[in-house]
Design a protein around this nucleic acid. Structure first.
Lengths: 228, 228
DNA sequence: AACCTGTCTTAACGCAGGCTGAACGAGCGC
DNA sequence: GCGCTCGTTCAGCCTGCGTTAAGACAGGTT
């Protein structure tokens, strides 16, 4: 996930960036308005953290110009408590969520996660497809009501697949999102993990929830269920 | 879809080519200017990825010569962030889109798809002709609402035909766009694939959506439907 | 009709890609 | 140190699918 952090207070920005990197995200950062505008326009950003109190080009103006240029990534606005009126203007200008300073870093991370999830088409934090239910908070999985204990990697794999339910997910795409480094080409780790995952999800192997598209990748069958 | 990748940095080129092949495209590649010029002039290319920072013949010069020679395929320009002024020159020289390094591979793939689609006269990413609906994103096909699972080559074949709906597509044209190597004259692969495709699209074989024009090629009947 | 040529169809083949059981080994708690 | 868990590797089997091959069929020409 590629995140753009726009915040002029250097220490705060550094802290946010550090936390996000620690959680394995790719981060672009700037404290200057025009550069922010440029980065948001030209880079494949997934989500933005935007402080409104910027020198030079204001945060609101940047946001408006992004939206005018058709950039649709979700934006999380940061604003000082004393100027909370700004948040209203922000939402009107096309922001998706806001946070009032001071805040806990965890809060930023959680909101960003929710924003990206919503942008991917999910509204709740519980991903549900067919009989499978993935709760992204406590990272638990149930199938037809029955809790299924998964290992760390099995969970990561399933979460990614379910998040992109209905789409074809290639093996390299999976590898790139599960592992930081360059994917090892001649390894069948994913296949092994997948076999174990499939077995745990559906021990009888009657109806395989994860279908294989030979040469192209995998796809979880069934439509997303948003209400529950 | 046959794609020409012109990029002198070997690792980057290899990565792009690998990703494109994985998604089922036929790819020609080179890191040298004159060879690029030749390939673009002589091969049935659908779309080009062109890095401007080439040694020898510059990317801009290649592009100008292609356009001067009447080659109309869409071109996606790659340029370093520090030299973004180039992109303007590129667009003036006849490029159709540009991407600033660094970028996500997914971004390249998405832009190429959009370029080819637009060049063929489609505005939406869902190609619809009669009862057939081809979704170029997830690469799924539905006929009269019913999902039809296709193999990789069956899909490629159908996508190309539907992309050029209403036009006559010759057998050699098909072969050249689906396969990288020289088309094997005495082989009936296409015919076999076509038979299987026709059966899957219309099991009863009542009204054949793909008509045969003896000695000239094939044509999917029915008008394009642009609105959903 | 007879013939030719281009297309369709069915059956079979071979192999790369995917699946899986078993074993290995690093990391961690006890 | 010992045992347990879990991620990874290895080897072998299986299968889907692209391809080949061969014969049937259809249009066009004489």
């Amino acid at each position: 996930m590629r995140i753009l952090v726009v915040e002029d207070e250097a220490p705060l920005r550094a802290q946010i960036v550090r936390e996000l990197r620690e959680r394995g995200h790719a981060v672009d950062e700037t404290g200057e308005g025009h550069e922010a505008l440029y980065l948001g326009n030209e880079y494949p950003i997934d989500v933005v953290v935007l402080d409104l109190g910027l020198p030079g080009l204001s945060g609101l103006e940047i946001l408006r110009r992004w939206r005018a240029a058709g950039r649709a990534f979700p934006v999380l606005i940061l604003t000082a408590r004393s100027r909370w009126q700004e948040k209203v203007d922000g939402l009107e200008a096309g922001a998706d969520d806001y946070l009032v300073k001071p805040f806990h870093i965890e809060e930023v991370v959680a909101r960003l996660r929710a924003l990206v999830r919503r942008a991917a088409g999910w509204s709740r934090s519980v991903l549900q497809v067919g009989e499978i239910e993935v709760d992204t908070g406590p990272q638990t999985v149930t199938v037809a009501g029955r809790q299924v204990p998964l290992t760390a990697y099995e969970y990561k794999l399933l979460e990614y697949l379910v998040l992109h339910a209905g789409e074809v997910v290639s093996k390299t795409e999976l590898a790139e999102h599960l592992y930081e480094e360059e994917a090892d080409r001649d390894s069948n780790v994913l296949e092994v993990l997948l076999t174990r995952l499939r077995r745990k999800l559906d021990p009888d192997r009657t109806l395989d929830p994860i279908e294989t598209l030979r040469g192209r990748g995998y796809r979880v069958r069934g439509d997303r269920q948003e209400d529950g």
